[in-house]
Design a protein around this nucleic acid. Structure first.
Lengths: 199, 199
DNA sequence: TCGCATAATTGACAGTGTAAAGTTTACACC
DNA sequence: GGTGTAAACTTTACACTGTCAATTATGCGA
Protein backbone atom coordinates (compact mmCIF):
# COMPACT_ATOMS: atom_id res chain seq x y z
CA UNK A 1 0.00 0.00 0.00
CA UNK A 2 2.60 2.54 -1.05
CA UNK A 3 0.21 5.42 -1.37
CA UNK A 4 0.98 8.87 -2.64
CA UNK A 5 2.08 9.78 0.84
CA UNK A 6 5.76 8.78 0.67
CA UNK A 7 6.78 10.60 -2.46
CA UNK A 8 9.10 13.11 -0.86
CA UNK A 9 12.49 11.80 0.15
CA UNK A 10 14.82 13.40 -2.34
CA UNK A 11 15.73 16.85 -1.15
CA UNK A 12 13.27 18.00 1.42
CA UNK A 13 11.75 15.55 3.87
CA UNK A 14 8.05 15.31 3.07
CA UNK A 15 7.68 18.72 1.55
CA UNK A 16 4.09 18.12 0.55
CA UNK A 17 2.89 17.88 4.13
CA UNK A 18 5.04 20.83 5.15
CA UNK A 19 3.42 22.95 2.46
CA UNK A 20 -0.06 21.95 3.59
CA UNK A 21 0.72 22.87 7.17
CA UNK A 22 2.26 26.16 6.08
CA UNK A 23 -0.87 26.84 4.08
CA UNK A 24 -3.12 26.17 7.06
CA UNK A 25 -1.00 28.56 9.11
CA UNK A 26 -1.33 31.30 6.51
CA UNK A 27 -5.03 30.65 6.27
CA UNK A 28 -5.50 30.86 10.01
CA UNK A 29 -3.47 34.03 10.31
CA UNK A 30 -4.82 36.00 7.40
CA UNK A 31 -7.91 34.38 5.91
CA UNK A 32 -8.52 33.10 2.41
CA UNK A 33 -6.60 35.85 0.63
CA UNK A 34 -3.46 35.14 2.63
CA UNK A 35 -3.12 31.64 1.17
CA UNK A 36 -0.51 32.02 -1.53
CA UNK A 37 1.74 29.60 -3.36
CA UNK A 38 4.74 31.85 -2.90
CA UNK A 39 4.19 32.48 0.78
CA UNK A 40 3.72 28.76 1.36
CA UNK A 41 7.00 28.14 -0.40
CA UNK A 42 8.81 30.78 1.62
CA UNK A 43 7.47 29.41 4.89
CA UNK A 44 8.57 25.89 3.97
CA UNK A 45 11.99 27.18 2.88
CA UNK A 46 11.79 26.20 -0.78
CA UNK A 47 11.75 28.10 -4.03
CA UNK A 48 8.65 29.96 -5.11
CA UNK A 49 7.69 27.47 -7.82
CA UNK A 50 8.05 24.31 -5.77
CA UNK A 51 4.42 24.10 -4.56
CA UNK A 52 3.10 24.07 -8.10
CA UNK A 53 4.85 20.73 -8.66
CA UNK A 54 3.25 18.99 -5.69
CA UNK A 55 -0.20 20.40 -6.19
CA UNK A 56 -1.49 21.32 -9.59
CA UNK A 57 -1.37 25.08 -9.17
CA UNK A 58 -3.04 27.15 -6.49
CA UNK A 59 -6.36 25.36 -6.84
CA UNK A 60 -4.67 22.06 -6.22
CA UNK A 61 -3.13 23.38 -3.02
CA UNK A 62 -6.50 24.67 -1.90
CA UNK A 63 -8.05 21.25 -2.54
CA UNK A 64 -5.28 19.51 -0.59
CA UNK A 65 -5.76 21.82 2.37
CA UNK A 66 -9.51 21.42 2.18
CA UNK A 67 -9.08 17.65 2.36
CA UNK A 68 -7.10 18.03 5.55
CA UNK A 69 -9.81 20.40 6.73
CA UNK A 70 -12.50 17.79 6.14
CA UNK A 71 -10.62 15.34 8.33
CA UNK A 72 -10.54 17.82 11.20
CA UNK A 73 -14.13 18.82 10.54
CA UNK A 74 -15.31 15.23 10.83
CA UNK A 75 -13.34 14.63 14.02
CA UNK A 76 -14.75 17.76 15.64
CA UNK A 77 -18.29 16.62 14.92
CA UNK A 78 -17.64 13.12 16.25
CA UNK A 79 -15.97 14.48 19.37
CA UNK A 80 -19.09 16.40 20.29
CA UNK A 81 -21.41 13.55 19.38
CA UNK A 82 -19.47 11.05 21.46
CA UNK A 83 -19.32 13.41 24.44
CA UNK A 84 -23.07 13.91 24.68
CA UNK A 85 -25.97 11.59 25.52
CA UNK A 86 -26.09 8.54 23.29
CA UNK A 87 -29.66 8.94 22.15
CA UNK A 88 -30.63 9.74 18.55
CA UNK A 89 -31.47 13.29 19.51
CA UNK A 90 -28.38 13.62 21.65
CA UNK A 91 -26.14 12.54 18.82
CA UNK A 92 -27.81 14.87 16.33
CA UNK A 93 -27.33 17.75 18.74
CA UNK A 94 -23.72 16.75 19.23
CA UNK A 95 -23.00 16.61 15.52
CA UNK A 96 -24.51 20.02 14.99
CA UNK A 97 -22.69 21.52 17.96
CA UNK A 98 -19.44 20.11 16.61
CA UNK A 99 -20.30 21.51 13.19
CA UNK A 100 -20.73 24.99 14.63
CA UNK A 101 -17.69 24.64 16.89
CA UNK A 102 -15.48 23.86 13.91
CA UNK A 103 -16.83 26.81 11.96
CA UNK A 104 -16.23 29.08 14.94
CA UNK A 105 -12.78 27.75 15.86
CA UNK A 106 -11.34 27.40 12.35
CA UNK A 107 -13.27 29.94 10.30
CA UNK A 108 -10.68 30.20 7.55
CA UNK A 109 -10.52 26.44 7.05
CA UNK A 110 -14.30 26.28 7.05
CA UNK A 111 -14.37 29.11 4.54
CA UNK A 112 -11.90 27.33 2.29
CA UNK A 113 -13.88 24.11 2.36
CA UNK A 114 -17.01 25.83 1.14
CA UNK A 115 -15.29 28.25 -1.23
CA UNK A 116 -15.43 25.92 -4.24
CA UNK A 117 -18.36 26.63 -6.49
CA UNK A 118 -20.49 24.21 -8.47
CA UNK A 119 -18.93 25.23 -11.79
CA UNK A 120 -15.36 24.85 -10.53
CA UNK A 121 -12.99 22.35 -12.11
CA UNK A 122 -12.08 20.86 -8.77
CA UNK A 123 -15.65 20.37 -7.60
CA UNK A 124 -15.48 16.61 -8.24
CA UNK A 125 -12.46 16.23 -5.98
CA UNK A 126 -14.23 18.28 -3.34
CA UNK A 127 -17.39 16.20 -3.39
CA UNK A 128 -15.33 13.04 -2.97
CA UNK A 129 -13.33 14.53 -0.11
CA UNK A 130 -16.43 15.69 1.71
CA UNK A 131 -18.19 12.32 1.58
CA UNK A 132 -16.91 11.00 4.95
CA UNK A 133 -17.86 14.23 6.69
CA UNK A 134 -21.27 14.24 5.09
CA UNK A 135 -21.76 10.62 6.11
CA UNK A 136 -21.39 11.58 9.78
CA UNK A 137 -24.25 14.03 9.49
CA UNK A 138 -26.25 11.56 7.42
CA UNK A 139 -25.92 8.88 10.09
CA UNK A 140 -27.09 11.25 12.80
CA UNK A 141 -30.14 12.14 10.72
CA UNK A 142 -31.10 8.56 9.89
CA UNK A 143 -33.19 7.86 13.03
CA UNK A 144 -35.38 10.84 12.25
CA UNK A 145 -36.27 9.89 8.70
CA UNK A 146 -39.97 8.99 8.51
CA UNK A 147 -40.44 5.55 6.97
CA UNK A 148 -40.96 5.61 3.25
CA UNK A 149 -39.50 9.08 2.72
CA UNK A 150 -36.28 10.17 1.06
CA UNK A 151 -33.52 10.62 3.69
CA UNK A 152 -32.25 13.54 1.63
CA UNK A 153 -35.15 15.64 2.90
CA UNK A 154 -34.16 15.46 6.56
CA UNK A 155 -30.48 15.76 5.74
CA UNK A 156 -31.10 18.85 3.66
CA UNK A 157 -33.13 20.47 6.41
CA UNK A 158 -30.49 19.84 9.06
CA UNK A 159 -27.52 20.73 6.91
CA UNK A 160 -29.10 23.89 5.52
CA UNK A 161 -30.04 25.10 8.98
CA UNK A 162 -26.65 24.56 10.57
CA UNK A 163 -24.62 25.61 7.55
CA UNK A 164 -26.59 28.80 7.11
CA UNK A 165 -26.20 29.71 10.75
CA UNK A 166 -22.45 29.12 10.62
CA UNK A 167 -22.10 31.33 7.55
CA UNK A 168 -24.21 34.09 9.06
CA UNK A 169 -21.86 34.13 12.03
CA UNK A 170 -18.80 34.25 9.80
CA UNK A 171 -20.25 37.12 7.78
CA UNK A 172 -20.86 39.10 10.94
CA UNK A 173 -24.65 39.29 10.66
CA UNK A 174 -25.19 39.03 14.39
CA UNK A 175 -22.93 41.89 15.38
CA UNK A 176 -20.46 41.71 18.23
CA UNK A 177 -22.83 39.99 20.66
CA UNK A 178 -23.26 36.26 21.07
CA UNK A 179 -25.07 34.50 18.25
CA UNK A 180 -28.37 32.80 19.11
CA UNK A 181 -27.17 29.23 18.73
CA UNK A 182 -30.01 28.01 20.91
CA UNK A 183 -32.50 29.14 18.30
CA UNK A 184 -30.95 26.77 15.78
CA UNK A 185 -30.85 23.86 18.17
CA UNK A 186 -34.49 24.48 19.09
CA UNK A 187 -35.61 24.25 15.49
CA UNK A 188 -33.54 21.11 15.17
CA UNK A 189 -35.93 19.47 17.60
CA UNK A 190 -38.82 20.05 15.24
CA UNK A 191 -37.23 18.14 12.39
CA UNK A 192 -38.51 14.75 11.31
CA UNK A 193 -40.26 12.13 13.38
CA UNK A 194 -38.65 11.31 16.71
CA UNK A 195 -37.98 7.56 16.82
CA UNK A 196 -38.68 7.45 20.56
CA UNK A 197 -39.69 9.96 23.22
CA UNK A 198 -36.28 11.12 24.34
CA UNK A 199 -37.39 12.33 27.71
CA UNK B 1 -31.45 66.60 -2.61
CA UNK B 2 -28.22 66.74 -4.55
CA UNK B 3 -26.93 63.37 -3.51
CA UNK B 4 -23.58 61.79 -4.30
CA UNK B 5 -25.11 60.59 -7.56
CA UNK B 6 -24.32 63.57 -9.79
CA UNK B 7 -20.62 63.85 -9.23
CA UNK B 8 -19.50 62.85 -12.70
CA UNK B 9 -19.86 65.46 -15.37
CA UNK B 10 -16.29 66.36 -16.15
CA UNK B 11 -14.89 63.91 -18.65
CA UNK B 12 -16.94 60.80 -18.62
CA UNK B 13 -20.70 60.90 -18.11
CA UNK B 14 -21.46 59.19 -14.81
CA UNK B 15 -18.46 56.95 -14.74
CA UNK B 16 -19.23 55.61 -11.29
CA UNK B 17 -22.43 53.92 -12.40
CA UNK B 18 -20.77 52.66 -15.57
CA UNK B 19 -18.05 51.02 -13.50
CA UNK B 20 -20.60 49.35 -11.24
CA UNK B 21 -22.48 47.95 -14.20
CA UNK B 22 -19.25 46.78 -15.81
CA UNK B 23 -18.37 45.09 -12.55
CA UNK B 24 -21.69 43.28 -12.38
CA UNK B 25 -21.15 42.08 -15.94
CA UNK B 26 -17.71 40.74 -15.10
CA UNK B 27 -19.08 39.12 -11.97
CA UNK B 28 -21.92 37.45 -13.86
CA UNK B 29 -19.64 36.21 -16.60
CA UNK B 30 -16.75 34.90 -14.56
CA UNK B 31 -17.56 34.78 -10.87
CA UNK B 32 -15.89 36.53 -7.96
CA UNK B 33 -12.34 36.21 -9.27
CA UNK B 34 -13.25 37.92 -12.53
CA UNK B 35 -14.10 41.18 -10.78
CA UNK B 36 -11.03 43.34 -11.27
CA UNK B 37 -10.35 47.05 -11.10
CA UNK B 38 -8.42 46.98 -14.35
CA UNK B 39 -10.99 44.99 -16.27
CA UNK B 40 -13.73 47.28 -15.03
CA UNK B 41 -11.73 50.25 -16.23
CA UNK B 42 -11.11 48.69 -19.62
CA UNK B 43 -14.78 47.85 -20.06
CA UNK B 44 -15.77 51.42 -19.19
CA UNK B 45 -13.10 52.82 -21.50
CA UNK B 46 -11.02 54.63 -18.91
CA UNK B 47 -7.50 54.25 -17.59
CA UNK B 48 -6.73 51.37 -15.28
CA UNK B 49 -6.39 53.54 -12.19
CA UNK B 50 -9.64 55.47 -12.59
CA UNK B 51 -11.83 53.08 -10.54
CA UNK B 52 -9.63 53.47 -7.49
CA UNK B 53 -10.61 57.14 -7.32
CA UNK B 54 -14.35 56.53 -7.31
CA UNK B 55 -14.28 53.61 -4.93
CA UNK B 56 -11.59 53.31 -2.34
CA UNK B 57 -9.66 50.46 -3.91
CA UNK B 58 -10.97 47.07 -4.89
CA UNK B 59 -12.83 46.54 -1.64
CA UNK B 60 -14.70 49.78 -2.14
CA UNK B 61 -15.80 48.66 -5.59
CA UNK B 62 -16.97 45.37 -4.16
CA UNK B 63 -18.99 47.19 -1.51
CA UNK B 64 -20.57 49.46 -4.10
CA UNK B 65 -21.58 46.51 -6.26
CA UNK B 66 -22.87 44.66 -3.21
CA UNK B 67 -25.07 47.65 -2.39
CA UNK B 68 -26.61 47.50 -5.85
CA UNK B 69 -26.96 43.75 -5.31
CA UNK B 70 -28.90 44.29 -2.09
CA UNK B 71 -31.38 46.49 -3.95
CA UNK B 72 -32.02 43.76 -6.50
CA UNK B 73 -32.11 41.15 -3.76
CA UNK B 74 -34.79 43.00 -1.88
CA UNK B 75 -36.89 43.54 -4.98
CA UNK B 76 -36.72 39.88 -5.91
CA UNK B 77 -38.00 38.87 -2.48
CA UNK B 78 -40.81 41.42 -2.57
CA UNK B 79 -41.81 40.35 -6.09
CA UNK B 80 -42.36 36.81 -4.92
CA UNK B 81 -44.10 37.85 -1.72
CA UNK B 82 -46.51 40.17 -3.55
CA UNK B 83 -47.29 37.51 -6.16
CA UNK B 84 -48.36 34.85 -3.65
CA UNK B 85 -51.27 34.61 -1.23
CA UNK B 86 -51.42 37.54 1.16
CA UNK B 87 -51.49 35.52 4.35
CA UNK B 88 -48.66 35.58 6.89
CA UNK B 89 -47.56 32.14 5.80
CA UNK B 90 -47.99 33.00 2.14
CA UNK B 91 -45.77 36.04 2.46
CA UNK B 92 -43.10 34.16 4.38
CA UNK B 93 -43.05 31.49 1.68
CA UNK B 94 -42.84 34.18 -0.96
CA UNK B 95 -39.94 35.95 0.69
CA UNK B 96 -38.01 32.70 0.98
CA UNK B 97 -38.79 31.67 -2.58
CA UNK B 98 -37.57 35.07 -3.74
CA UNK B 99 -34.46 34.65 -1.60
CA UNK B 100 -33.65 31.35 -3.26
CA UNK B 101 -34.57 32.64 -6.70
CA UNK B 102 -32.10 35.50 -6.38
CA UNK B 103 -29.35 33.16 -5.23
CA UNK B 104 -30.05 30.85 -8.14
CA UNK B 105 -30.40 33.55 -10.79
CA UNK B 106 -27.54 35.80 -9.72
CA UNK B 107 -25.13 33.47 -7.94
CA UNK B 108 -22.10 35.71 -8.37
CA UNK B 109 -23.88 38.74 -6.95
CA UNK B 110 -25.18 36.64 -4.09
CA UNK B 111 -21.67 35.34 -3.51
CA UNK B 112 -20.25 38.85 -3.45
CA UNK B 113 -22.84 40.05 -0.95
CA UNK B 114 -21.92 37.35 1.51
CA UNK B 115 -18.18 37.34 0.80
CA UNK B 116 -17.35 39.98 3.42
CA UNK B 117 -16.17 38.48 6.68
CA UNK B 118 -16.80 39.67 10.21
CA UNK B 119 -13.22 40.92 10.64
CA UNK B 120 -13.25 42.88 7.37
CA UNK B 121 -12.78 46.63 7.34
CA UNK B 122 -15.86 47.17 5.22
CA UNK B 123 -18.15 45.06 7.37
CA UNK B 124 -19.81 48.15 8.86
CA UNK B 125 -20.75 49.46 5.40
CA UNK B 126 -22.09 46.04 4.53
CA UNK B 127 -24.28 45.75 7.60
CA UNK B 128 -25.79 49.15 6.86
CA UNK B 129 -26.40 48.29 3.23
CA UNK B 130 -28.08 45.01 4.09
CA UNK B 131 -30.51 46.52 6.59
CA UNK B 132 -33.39 47.15 4.14
CA UNK B 133 -33.10 43.62 2.75
CA UNK B 134 -33.00 42.16 6.21
CA UNK B 135 -36.03 44.21 7.18
CA UNK B 136 -38.08 42.50 4.48
CA UNK B 137 -37.35 39.12 5.96
CA UNK B 138 -37.88 40.46 9.45
CA UNK B 139 -41.32 41.75 8.56
CA UNK B 140 -42.34 38.42 7.09
CA UNK B 141 -41.25 36.67 10.27
CA UNK B 142 -43.02 39.03 12.65
CA UNK B 143 -46.44 37.31 12.63
CA UNK B 144 -44.82 34.06 13.71
CA UNK B 145 -43.01 35.42 16.74
CA UNK B 146 -44.60 33.99 19.91
CA UNK B 147 -45.61 36.77 22.30
CA UNK B 148 -42.95 37.64 24.82
CA UNK B 149 -40.06 36.09 22.90
CA UNK B 150 -37.17 37.73 21.08
CA UNK B 151 -37.97 38.14 17.36
CA UNK B 152 -34.33 37.40 16.64
CA UNK B 153 -34.98 33.72 17.36
CA UNK B 154 -37.51 33.24 14.58
CA UNK B 155 -35.54 35.42 12.20
CA UNK B 156 -32.38 33.46 12.84
CA UNK B 157 -34.13 30.18 12.23
CA UNK B 158 -35.64 31.30 8.95
CA UNK B 159 -32.57 33.08 7.67
CA UNK B 160 -30.19 30.28 8.62
CA UNK B 161 -32.35 27.70 6.92
CA UNK B 162 -32.78 29.54 3.64
CA UNK B 163 -29.26 30.95 3.54
CA UNK B 164 -27.69 27.57 4.20
CA UNK B 165 -29.75 25.93 1.52
CA UNK B 166 -28.79 28.60 -1.01
CA UNK B 167 -25.11 28.18 -0.21
CA UNK B 168 -25.30 24.40 -0.44
CA UNK B 169 -26.73 24.77 -3.93
CA UNK B 170 -24.01 27.20 -4.96
CA UNK B 171 -21.29 24.89 -3.66
CA UNK B 172 -22.70 22.02 -5.69
CA UNK B 173 -23.56 19.76 -2.76
CA UNK B 174 -26.68 18.41 -4.42
CA UNK B 175 -25.02 17.29 -7.63
CA UNK B 176 -26.43 17.96 -11.06
CA UNK B 177 -30.02 17.04 -10.17
CA UNK B 178 -32.66 19.41 -8.83
CA UNK B 179 -32.16 20.58 -5.26
CA UNK B 180 -34.87 19.61 -2.74
CA UNK B 181 -36.28 23.08 -2.23
CA UNK B 182 -39.54 21.59 -0.97
CA UNK B 183 -37.71 20.18 2.02
CA UNK B 184 -36.73 23.68 3.11
CA UNK B 185 -40.21 25.11 2.60
CA UNK B 186 -41.68 22.20 4.56
CA UNK B 187 -39.49 22.91 7.57
CA UNK B 188 -40.43 26.57 7.26
CA UNK B 189 -43.98 25.58 8.17
CA UNK B 190 -42.79 24.23 11.49
CA UNK B 191 -41.27 27.53 12.57
CA UNK B 192 -42.86 29.67 15.26
CA UNK B 193 -46.48 29.92 16.24
CA UNK B 194 -48.94 30.42 13.40
CA UNK B 195 -51.00 33.54 14.16
CA UNK B 196 -54.09 32.06 12.57
CA UNK B 197 -55.02 28.72 11.01
CA UNK B 198 -54.06 29.40 7.42
CA UNK B 199 -56.37 26.82 5.94
C1' DT C 1 29.37 3.70 -14.19
C1' DC C 2 25.59 5.11 -16.75
C1' DG C 3 21.18 6.77 -17.89
C1' DC C 4 16.85 8.48 -16.16
C1' DA C 5 12.89 9.85 -13.80
C1' DT C 6 11.66 12.89 -10.16
C1' DA C 7 12.40 17.07 -7.23
C1' DA C 8 13.43 21.47 -7.08
C1' DT C 9 15.50 25.91 -8.77
C1' DT C 10 15.91 29.75 -11.78
C1' DG C 11 14.32 33.19 -14.77
C1' DA C 12 10.83 35.23 -17.23
C1' DC C 13 6.16 36.96 -18.22
C1' DA C 14 1.42 38.79 -17.89
C1' DG C 15 -1.97 40.32 -14.73
C1' DT C 16 -3.16 42.39 -10.35
C1' DG C 17 -3.74 46.41 -6.64
C1' DT C 18 -1.82 50.61 -5.20
C1' DA C 19 0.64 54.82 -4.65
C1' DA C 20 2.63 59.23 -6.36
C1' DA C 21 2.97 62.66 -9.64
C1' DG C 22 1.29 65.00 -13.53
C1' DT C 23 -2.48 66.55 -16.75
C1' DT C 24 -6.92 68.02 -18.08
C1' DT C 25 -11.38 69.92 -17.23
C1' DA C 26 -15.09 72.57 -15.08
C1' DC C 27 -16.37 76.22 -12.31
C1' DA C 28 -16.42 80.04 -8.85
C1' DC C 29 -14.65 84.49 -8.20
C1' DC C 30 -12.80 89.08 -9.12
C1' DG D 1 -11.76 88.05 -19.62
C1' DG D 2 -8.38 86.25 -16.53
C1' DT D 3 -7.14 83.45 -12.59
C1' DG D 4 -7.05 80.14 -9.09
C1' DT D 5 -8.70 75.85 -7.42
C1' DA D 6 -10.66 71.50 -6.84
C1' DA D 7 -11.99 67.44 -8.87
C1' DA D 8 -11.54 63.74 -12.57
C1' DC D 9 -8.57 61.23 -14.88
C1' DT D 10 -3.97 59.68 -16.80
C1' DT D 11 0.64 58.22 -16.54
C1' DT D 12 4.30 55.93 -14.49
C1' DA D 13 6.21 52.94 -11.37
C1' DC D 14 6.45 49.16 -8.03
C1' DA D 15 5.64 44.94 -5.43
C1' DC D 16 3.17 40.79 -5.47
C1' DT D 17 0.81 36.93 -7.61
C1' DG D 18 0.28 32.41 -10.61
C1' DT D 19 2.26 30.04 -14.32
C1' DC D 20 5.33 28.41 -17.65
C1' DA D 21 9.83 26.78 -19.82
C1' DA D 22 14.43 25.69 -19.22
C1' DT D 23 17.80 24.10 -16.17
C1' DT D 24 20.15 21.80 -12.36
C1' DA D 25 20.45 18.44 -8.68
C1' DT D 26 19.40 14.18 -6.54
C1' DG D 27 18.54 9.36 -5.88
C1' DC D 28 17.80 4.85 -7.90
C1' DG D 29 17.87 0.90 -10.96
C1' DA D 30 20.44 -1.28 -14.75
Amino acid sequence: MSDTKDKASHHHGNLRQALIEAGIELLTEGGLDALTLRKCAARAGVSHAAPAHHFDGIDGLRVAIAQEGFVRFRHRMLDFADAGPQTPRGRLHGICKGYLAFAREEPALYDLIFSFRAHSKKITDMRESSTPSYQVLRDACAPFVPPGTDPLIIETQVWSLVHGFALLILTGRFGPGPAPEDAVLALLDRIGTPPEPDR
